[in-house]
Nucleic acid binder design. Structure first.
Lengths: 109, 109
DNA sequence: TCACCTATATGCTATCTACACTTATAGTAT
DNA sequence: ATACTATAAGTGTAGATAGCATATAGGTGA
């Protein structure tokens, strides 16, 4: 769920850099465990290779240089694809939970 | 999603064997791709090692011997745990889809 | 006899994840 | 001055997982 999280954050706000994304992705809580920054950076490089994001170095401000990303139209389309897939998944999983409950399986232990 | 699928099928019906499970799991459509029989057998061995299922050889009928599985109380509890986890996941993913739509991302391309 | 279907099981490889580590810049505390 | 901390980006690697093929074996029909 790293890629859709990153794409959503880029679609919802203005351009941000990888480190900020690594914090924000964990704030979303879509992944069941904490996402490590390395995975974010690798994801961003993959997205850039696919033309879904473009990056520019921002040397203004203090601290180390930031690589700032922004979404491309291809990236928006990629996110739309994810939304379609996840929507179907929500339906299937919700249905599964109902089926389990109808067989007497209760999530309250 | 192989393990919850297998556990559900064992919880919903009477005892069945691995080959039948490998067909039924794909019928459920919980996994996004087709599940290969090998994964089912490995899953079943893991579940048996954890005491979630027990198996007996059925040599009646024609064709090769069938290893027939049935769910244990520990297995039912394991499935209940899955239902709780998947229920939370459905909520999180549904929320994510709504958030994407509110930012103008539409699943219809 | 040969091909095919059922049934279980193993082997291998590509990919992904989680964890740790490295490099580098700037501010702050001692 | 020196050490420590926070920010920022990136690599390396071991373990888990998935998908693919392969092996074995009994039974059925052409």
């Amino acid at each position: 769920m790293i890629e859709p999280s990153v794409l959503y954050l880029l679609a919802s706000g203005t351009a941000i850099h990888g480190y900020e994304l690594s914090v924000a992705v964990n704030g979303l809580g879509l992944a069941e465990t904490l996402v490590d920054p390395g995975a974010i950076y690798r994801c961003l490089r993959g997205l850039e290779a696919d033309g879904c994001v473009i990056s520019n170095w921002d040397t203004s401000g203090s601290g180390p240089a930031r690589r700032v990303y922004q979404l491309t139209p291809a990236g928006r389309q990629r996110l739309a694809g994810w939304v379609a897939v996840i929507g179907q998944r929500v339906q299937a999983l919700g249905n599964f939970v109902d089926m389990c409950r109808s067989v007497g399986i209760d999530d309250k232990s």
